[in-house]
Amino acid sequence: MPLPTMSDLREHARERLSAAVWDFIEGGSGAERTLREAEAAYAELRLRPRVLVDVSQPDCSVEILGDLLASPVGVAPMAYHQLVHPDGETATAEAAGIAGVLLVTGIFASRTLEETAAAASGPLWLQLYWLRRREALAALVARAEAAGYRALVLTVDAPKVAVRPRDRRNSFTLPADITAANLDPALTERSHRAAGGTSGIEEHAREQFDPSITWSDLAWLRARTRLPLVLKGVLTGEDAALAVEHGIDALIVSNHGGRQLDRAVTALEALPEIVAAVPADLPVLIDGGIRSGTDIAVALALGARAVLVGRPVLWGLACDGAKGAAGVLELLRTELLDTMILSGRPTLDRLDASAVTRRAAHR
């Protein structure tokens, strides 16, 4: 049976989820301008196909921080996968393993680090927010190392959670049976209650996120782990250069899926500036707005080593658990390989800046 299209999956997922959960997943901050522009940015670029190239053996495998992936794709960190499927992150881990790709587990996962690791057959990274209670952060880092996670991803674009109008309108809170399984319940209790016109997620973040951290605080985290440290949420060359100075091992160019600073530059627009600011051997990944294998090819051509995909994986998970999420990842890989073949660029090193051009402005 042919794989459904991404738009089919989106509509099927929407039918299966409550309106409030759908808005929590799909919504953005402010007027949602950045949310809309994330996808639109990819439409501004065109591929420049080469011809009479041997494309009989295309290869889209890639190595990231010592792990070989079947395709340059990973699952972006997202909270509470059990909102869309009872198996939650264990199903997502199974799907990533089937597809041979990376899974970045969120700090607010609804299954434990250990359960997720037991279900995984591919590499795992753990995403962190900087909590006010540093002992809770240190305990998570130690558990991640013990469970075999391969890197830590510190999200740095969220000193607070931005106003997300859909969640406020719905007074969104977590159901009682879904929790942040890796944290003391006292740290996330606020996520389960909200007064009218507020969001439990927003109020929880205001209580627990530490807005005072600076570059100097990275030394505290580095001293507590042997794992590579990745920064997620970098959108300027200046910050990319500072990350290099502070010994960061990889970067994720991201505007948080349009859920933080509205009117922020899109990740795709920021990507070339960031790639130019770091050494060639430092992996730069990107997330936000990727909906097809062609989008992946464009990101790789602009210098990304790999991409992370968020919402589409949840659509697949909502539709058919691990099988559905694996189907999304396989669809993206198939589309990427097709794009590589048809553009005459059968290996990832051939997907360079010469592969893309910006759409000509209408006169």
Rank of each mutant, 00 (worst) to 15 (best):
A91E: 02
G122M: 02
P272W: 08
F172L: 10
Y80F: 15
R311L: 03
I213D: 01
V53P: 00
A138E: 07
Q82E: 15
T5A: 07
A136Y: 00
A306C: 12
R14W: 00
G258T: 01
T334N: 12
G233E: 04
T198Q: 14
G100E: 04
R134N: 10
S292V: 06
Y149F: 15
T236H: 06
S7Y: 00
V356E: 12
R363T: 10
A95Q: 02
A219R: 13
R305Q: 15
D184Y: 05
F108I: 07
L126E: 01
A304M: 11
N170R: 13
I98K: 14
A109D: 00
T198E: 14
E145R: 11
P2K: 13
Y129A: 03
P165Y: 04
L218C: 06
A353G: 13
G28D: 03
V75C: 12
G200N: 04
L317C: 04
D287R: 06
A91T: 03
L17M: 13
A162S: 15
R46V: 11
L183N: 12
R168N: 11
E39I: 13
A138T: 11
I107Q: 15
V75L: 13
D239V: 00
G316Q: 08
L229F: 09
L351H: 13
A299P: 10
E335F: 01
R190C: 07
R111E: 08
D8N: 09
L251P: 03
W215L: 08
A325G: 05
L187G: 07
D352R: 11
V51C: 02
S191H: 12
L124W: 03
M78Q: 08
D262I: 05
L69E: 01
Y129F: 12
A176S: 13
A205T: 09
L329H: 12
L231M: 09
A241M: 01
A277E: 04
A13D: 05
D262T: 07
V62W: 03
P211R: 14
L128R: 10
H362P: 03
L221Y: 09
A322Q: 01
A147R: 10
A144L: 11
G237H: 09
P228G: 09
E145Y: 12
P185A: 04
N255W: 00
D167Y: 01
K323I: 12
P58A: 13
S29Y: 02
S292L: 04
H246N: 13
L140Y: 02
A301N: 11
V161S: 11
G106V: 06
A326S: 09
P165F: 01
N170V: 03
S171W: 02
A138P: 00
L47I: 14
V73M: 09
R150Q: 14
S292G: 10
I290F: 08
G321E: 06
A41R: 05
E273S: 15
P211Y: 06
L65H: 02
L65V: 12
D217V: 00
L35W: 02
A162Q: 04
R10K: 15
V55A: 14
L17S: 00
D157A: 00
R16P: 01
E32S: 08
A322D: 02
S354H: 11
G148W: 09
E89S: 06
H256K: 06
L251D: 04
N255K: 02
A176F: 00
S61M: 07
M6S: 10
D157N: 10
G289T: 06
E89K: 06
S292W: 08
A264G: 13
H12G: 02
K160Q: 14
D287F: 05
